[in-house]
Every structure is written in structure tokens, then in C-alpha cells.
Simulated assay, not measured.
Amino acid sequence: MAFPLPRGVTASEIAFLAEMETVTVVPRQRLEGLELLGGPVEPLVPPRRASLPLWLALLLKRQRRANIIPPPWLHPEPLDLILEIESGHQDYQNAFSPPPPLPGQPSVFDRDGTPAARPQYTPDGNRYYAAPPFLPQNTAQLTTSDRDPPSLPFHWVEVGNLLLESASDDLVNPDQIRRTLKDLREVRMAKMRSGVDILDAAAIGGGGIALTGVGSMELGEERGFVAGVVDGLRRIGSSKEQARREQMAEQRANGGYDGTQDDDEEEDYMEF
């Protein structure tokens, strides 16, 4: 007998996928390189920075063999700015702050051309475009541009919670970061739950729901709500349509509707 599982990816599965995100560490002792399924890991030589998968960085952190450098967005100032944009900016009252640009794509505030995202190639020569968690969206940057606005990566909820849980001593003011992340989640979840009119239009085929900038965990948590609302609205619309058709059929049977009644009424109204 199969266990009844919820539709879509569960929260634990999303968190597991987020552990493949790449973060920056500072090793505290020398470690040899590793050959992993996701690719080789370079040897760790202190105090040289290195990029490791999040699960491996957390393991070395628990063993006190490395310190994790938080990503640029996981600081009090960028998070406060993102919260201000999400809650007070007029352009984002019903939208979400823009996600990080893809590799080779300019920032949303840059005006120096619009190159497309750069493709990558497999050993067989097949072209593909990398997606989270295989994008360096959570690595520490040595240099940052003032023109680049702070943005939340696709796995921001999972990465933030994991680092707060296991590497809070490596973060700047972790208590404030924890409060700001909580406020951000509440603001963004309220936006997703307030678009009932948009869901109504999407249910009858009149449009779609813009989810640009929404994170992986947010999609997983709201999948049931959004799908349930759209499904319920679709049932309501189909029941109304069925009732209308039954009413028209009854009128035809009683001789009160012959298919040209609407045209005759319109002509009489124009003559009057």
C-alpha cells in the first residue's frame, strides 16, 4: 500500500536539493581534494578561500575544520533594503523583488546592452543552461558593484535557515538576520495569497500568475494553496456554464428561445 504523499515536492526534499548550493569557506586545516558525483572538489589550503557544496561546508563547519563566509545577500543591510523594496516600493506592491541575474546577463539596473545568458556544454557537446542549485548565487564575492541591487536567490529560505542553524557564529548579527528573514517571508506570502483576482482570471484562461523572483520553498509551500484556489474557481466557472446551458436548453424546449431572440431584441431596441 502506497503512502499518501502531497502533490509536488515536499519541504524536506526542497531543503535536500538546496544543500547542493555552492558556498564559500575558509578552511582551518589542510584537506585533500575529493571526487564527488557533482564534480571534483579542490584541495583546501588555509587561509585560501574555496567553493564547496553547502552540505560539505556544513559538515566541515560542525567538525570545526572550516568557517563559512555568508553570501552577499545574507547580511542585515541588504536584507533590510530588500524588505523595504518588497513592502514599500510602489513598483513591487503586487510583484516580487527581481532575482539575481543569470551568468552573462546584466543586472536589472544596467543599461550597457542586453546579452543573453551564456550556455554551457556537456562533454558530449550538448548545450544546456545552468539553473539553481548549480549557479553561484550564494558564494561570497570579493568585489561588488554599487549598481547591482541586492536580490534573493532561488533557495534563499533554505540556505538562510541552514546557515542560521549550523553557522550562526559566522554571520553578522544573526538575530537581526533571523527577524528580517521572517518578515520577508510574511510579506511575500501575503502577496501570493492576495492575488485571488489574478487566480480567477487564470482559472478561466484569461491570463497567468507572475511568479518571477519567487523562491523554491515559497513555491513548494504555496503550491497547494494556489492549485486549490485555481481548481475551485475552475469548478465554479464550469458549474455556472453548465447551469447557463441547461437554462438555454429549457428555454428552447419551452419555445422561448429560438437562437435569434437576442438579434431581434437588439433590432427592436435600435428602432425605438
Rank of each mutant, 00 (worst) to 15 (best):
E84G: 04
P115E: 15
L184M: 06
I14K: 04
A201L: 12
P115H: 12
G113D: 09
R30A: 14
S151Q: 13
F109Y: 07
E222G: 04
M1P: 11
L211Q: 06
A117Y: 09
T212A: 14
S87G: 01
N161L: 13
F109C: 00
N173C: 02
V159Q: 09
G8A: 09
G33A: 13
V9R: 14
E218P: 07
E246W: 04
A117C: 12
D183Q: 11
V230R: 08
P27A: 00
L164G: 11
P4F: 15
I85Q: 07
F109L: 10
G195R: 14
R235I: 08
A130V: 02
Y92H: 02
V23E: 02
A167S: 13
F134I: 03
G215V: 04
P103L: 03
F16A: 15
P132I: 06
N126G: 06
L233I: 12
L142F: 13
R64S: 15
Y129K: 12
G256L: 12
G39H: 12
R111D: 01
E250K: 14
A66K: 10
L102Q: 06
N254L: 14
L184N: 02
R188H: 04
R64C: 13
D197F: 11
A18G: 12
P103T: 09
A243K: 03
Q261L: 11
D110S: 13
I177S: 05
P136K: 08
Y269F: 08
D110A: 09
R245S: 09
R185G: 00
P4K: 15
T24Q: 09
W156N: 06
N126D: 15
L44F: 10
G220Q: 04
D200R: 15
Q141T: 05
E246R: 09
I14P: 06
L74S: 03
F134Q: 09
P149Y: 03
R30G: 05
G224Q: 05
G33L: 10
I198C: 05
A50T: 05
T139L: 14
S97P: 01
G255E: 07
T180Y: 02
R30I: 13
Y121K: 10
E266V: 00
R62P: 08
L54E: 03
M217Y: 08
Q261G: 13
L211S: 06
I177K: 03
P101Q: 02
